[in-house]
Design a protein around this nucleic acid. Structure first.
Lengths: 208, 208
DNA sequence: CAGTATGCTAACCAAATGGTCAGCCCTGAG
DNA sequence: CTCAGGGCTGACCATTTGGTTAGCATACTG
């Protein structure tokens, strides 16, 4: 890993280091000096290349997003981004989770983009009959995407619940993606009683 | 709101203010001085009551968790915590989302507790026939809980996708919970082809 | 009344942070 | 060779941060 890094320009090395640290600790818990020292450069060089800390963060955002966008398969359709997320390295995934949570404009744009693509994909599926019709397609799409991305944010807890040591362990990821597809395919509830109950609650709320 | 706060002890007022700010901005982006000034006290008083910033954070954790645990209905079963989350105020929800993301020990314990309760509930449902049988019950439970909590972390993006202005708008929450229950009840996919495709991919991966 | 705990504050402190600046070193062009 | 420009650094700076301390006021208790 370090030997591979040696080939990179200092600028790229700094960005990669920042990506890693930001993803692991959160942007504002990581100082420029920490990034610099871990990248083996002076902290002034970081500013020299990225002007401000915000500039560095944005560079990370752009890099990660380009990785996700221009992934192996150009088409976001198929499994709607999930594959790209799966393929991305652990550091990138961690960073993405933070970015969505911190609500940077770049992350928001990416989210919206994924929602839009997924919306089209689901709609297409409805037309072709392999996706259920929804009573609120827009909400369903948004929630579907949120759920796909949820493990990025809850990875730590998820892995603990599965009894896996490493948060972004590949085996664990495969396991819960499988569980997710199972839910998306067969649902969780075997009959409509929860749905009915919920509708009753809402009706009562409306009457109140 | 402010008039209601006037009745509280300064200690409680500080905690509530911190809860609000921490939830909105993230713990480490909020200074003790910011909390103090917003609560209308000196920053030294904050330390006087909570000793350290970490102490304040822990007090917030404990408070929020006790709110969630000892909610209206003592039994976490039914809708498995979702109701409690719905009933909790926006500030509390925001804070909870941050807490899960920051991975504090208290949040982790709460998560595990919810997973356990939900696991029992789903198992019971399987026994009684109103919950689908799963091929990996543990993974399903973990994912189910993660998905229930996901809106806490992705609220901002979710509301944007729904075209709602306020992140924790009640109407929006009702709308996507309904969409969620719809998915849990009927699934998303109308046939098993995605599941089958996924299994094929994994088999190929295993062969590799 | 004396004494003492408690809520509270102003002033202060050391450390760390993001950012600036002057200048070194090295390569590549004239 | 010269010299210009980019990569890179050490030293410096203002600001903010979490945390400490001494002390004030008020209220309860003997």
């Amino acid at each position: 890993m370090r030997s591979a890094d040696d080939d990179l320009t200092a600028r790229a090395r700094i960005r990669n280091t920042a990506l890693e640290l930001f993803g692991a600790e959160g942007v504002n818990r990581v100082s420029l000096r920490a990034v610099a020292s871990r990248a083996g450069v002076s902290h002034a060089l970081v500013l020299h290349h990225f002007a401000t800390k915000e500039g560095l963060r944005k560079a990370c955002d752009d890099h990660v997003i380009s990785l996700v966008r221009g992934g192996p398969e150009a088409d976001l359709g198929d499994t709607a981004g999930l594959t790209a997320m799966l393929e991305a390295g652990a550091a990138v995934r961690r960073y993405l989770g933070r970015a969505f949570l911190d609500g940077t404009p770049e992350a928001a744009a990416l989210f919206d983009e994924i929602v839009e693509a997924t919306g089209r994909w689901l709609e297409e599926g409805v037309g072709e009959g392999w996706v259920q019709r929804s009573e609120d397609p827009r909400a369903r799409t948004a929630l579907y995407v949120t759920w796909l991305l949820a493990p990025l944010a809850f990875g730590e807890h998820l892995s603990r619940a599965l009894g896996v040591s490493d948060v972004h362990d590949m085996e664990a990821m495969l396991r819960f993606s499988r569980a997710g597809i199972e839910i998306f395919t067969r649902g969780v509830f075997a009959d409509e009683r929860v749905l009915t109950a919920w509708d009753a609650v809402e009706k009562e709320r409306g009457a109140r």
